[in-house]
């Protein structure tokens, strides 16, 4: 079956307002071109899910007013510091943060992947992460009483959105060792992917590419977007645009600075021109 291949702007248009959107961390393959298209189309009330953390793309969406809640183990610009728009929104009370921890997000997505209602996880007991999660339960291990253990409900994102180095015309997407992106695709109802290039042939025909490939079965639509991670890099591909990221981190410290960045970088630059 052939993949649905659309322009980046159309890909973003397929992500509805109010959707729970699973996003990879900055050290994965981030679909910044599609994120900018989401901002241009005025997406709102998005519920971001960090798998397991979110960086620049989340801060940009929050600054642009697209986000209602964020569930994540962390929001960070890493060496560039705190996420300025996230921090401002939390202090102002304009977004809700649902604090989690990395393995809880991975495990709850694995529960969705297995189509089971919940999954147990060690740790967490005595933390304020657990104390503030009404949706998590502490039970006594039914197989070995006297052993308290936390249960997490399965996480079912409406959408997984990420970038990848390549796909084929059948919608098979190569993510290599970034298997959390495969987990996201398995767990989400719809998966939207931007890729550096769409290659001839079938990625499933070669064992070396097949092992790191998400089958087209899980991929709702693709967009070809060379440089689609910019200003992030792609590991093993191109480097991040460090000067741009540093400038973002600086400008986004104020609302006015962020607005100027947004206008110059996102609103006046359609994805096709990037």
């Amino acid at each position: 079956m052939l993949a649905t291949v659309v322009p980046v702007e159309d890909l973003a248009a397929r992500i509805p307002d109010g959707a729970t959107v699973a996003l990879p961390p900055d050290y994965g393959y981030c679909a910044l071109g599609a994120v900018h298209a989401l901002i241009r189309r005025g997406a709102c009330r998005l519920r971001l899910l960090g798998v397991p953390a979110i960086g620049f793309q989340g801060d940009m969406l929050i600054g642009a007013g697209c986000v209602e809640t964020v569930e994540t183990a962390a929001m960070t610009l890493s060496e560039y510091g705190l996420c300025p728009r996230f921090t401002a929104a939390v202090k102002a009370g304009t977004i809700t943060v649902v604090d989690s921890t990395c393995p809880a997000i991975h495990a709850a997505l694995q529960a969705a992947e297995k189509a089971i209602p919940f999954i147990p996880l060690r740790g967490l007991i005595g933390s304020d992460i657990l104390a503030r999660r009404d949706d998590w339960k502490l039970i006594d291990n039914p197989f070995a009483p006297g052993d308290p253990v936390v249960l997490l409900p399965a996480l079912h994102p409406d959408v997984a959105l990420f970038h990848a180095p390549m796909a084929d015309r059948f919608g098979n997407v190569w993510v290599g060792v970034r298997r959390e992106q495969m987990l996201m695709a398995h767990a989400a109802a719809s998966t939207f992917v931007t890729v550096e290039r769409i290659v001839d042939g079938n990625l499933m025909d070669d064992e070396r590419t097949k092992a790191g490939t998400i089958p087209g079965l899980y991929v709702t639509a693709l967009a070809e977007a060379e440089g689609g991670a910019w200003p992030m890099g792609i590991p093993g591909g191109y480097e991040p645009d460090r000067a741009h990221l540093a400038r973002y981190a600086e400008l986004a410290r104020t609302e006015e600075g962020f607005a100027a960045w947004l206008e110059a970088t996102v609103m006046s630059r359609p994805a096709a021109a990037e």
């Binding site: 953390a53 183990a73 962390a74 960070t76 705190l82 939390v90 921890t101 393995p103 007991i125």
Partner: peptide
């Protein structure tokens, strides 16, 4: 507000 707990809520236990 700081980034968040990362994996601490689990790794500290194990």
């Amino acid at each position: 507000r700081f980034p968040g707990s990362f994996g601490s809520g689990y790794l500290y236990f194990v």
